[in-house]
């Protein structure tokens, strides 16, 4: 009885795990399957906007996966497949938009942020060093005074 329950639980859970993407495609090689997987993970579902079409079970994602598979089996390149889908659904579906004039700021923002941060750190460090140097360096008059005070101190302890 206990075993039966365990088996039932297992089969039930495996059903949950596979329900996400129900369609099954055949691939001749593992590389092809990997290529398909990479493609559908890079494409965004237009209906359920924060999912890629690999994870989404919206009907439109199913259609898009079928189209990717169909074009792949007809020998299309990744570029051709992506272009064909963008022509229908727009650039919105690209998780990695093209690098071009319009999107360069988007792509460059992380680099700009890191460089800006580095610049700020550098400025702060340089400033604080220069400040310390200025404070520690004594003018000749100050030096003379220090030596005089020290000498007086010596005399006091000797006495």
């Amino acid at each position: 009885m206990r075993h039966l329950l365990f088996v039932m639980l297992l089969t039930g859970l495996s059903g949950v795990a596979t329900a996400e993407v129900a369609d099954v495609y055949d691939f001749r090689t593992v590389e092809q399957e990997q290529r398909f997987q990479n493609l559908i993970e890079e494409l965004r579902c237009p209906k359920c906007q924060n999912q890629n079409i690999a994870d989404s079970n919206a009907p439109i994602s199913k259609d898009m996966r079928a189209e990717v598979y169909r074009m792949m089996s007809e020998g299309a390149t990744d570029r051709e497949i992506i272009d064909a889908l963008v022509a229908r659904f727009g650039e919105f579906i690209l998780y990695k938009p093209e690098v071009e004039k319009r999107t360069i700021l988007l792509w460059a923002t992380p680099a700009i942020a890191v460089l800006g941060g580095l610049l700020m750190v550098t400025i702060v460090v340089i400033r604080s060093r220069r400040g310390n140097a200025e404070q520690t360096a004594l003018t000749p008059e100050e030096k003379a005074r220090v030596e005089k005070i020290l000498a007086e101190g010596d005399r006091d302890t000797n006495a």
């Binding site: 237009p46 209906k47 009907p59 439109i60 259609d63 189209e67 229908r88 659904f89 727009g90």
Partner: peptide
């Protein structure tokens, strides 16, 4: 089958 819909980029 939604073929024309797909070509038109219909998503709902």
């Amino acid at each position: 089958k939604g073929t024309l819909g797909f070509d038109l980029g219909v998503y709902g």
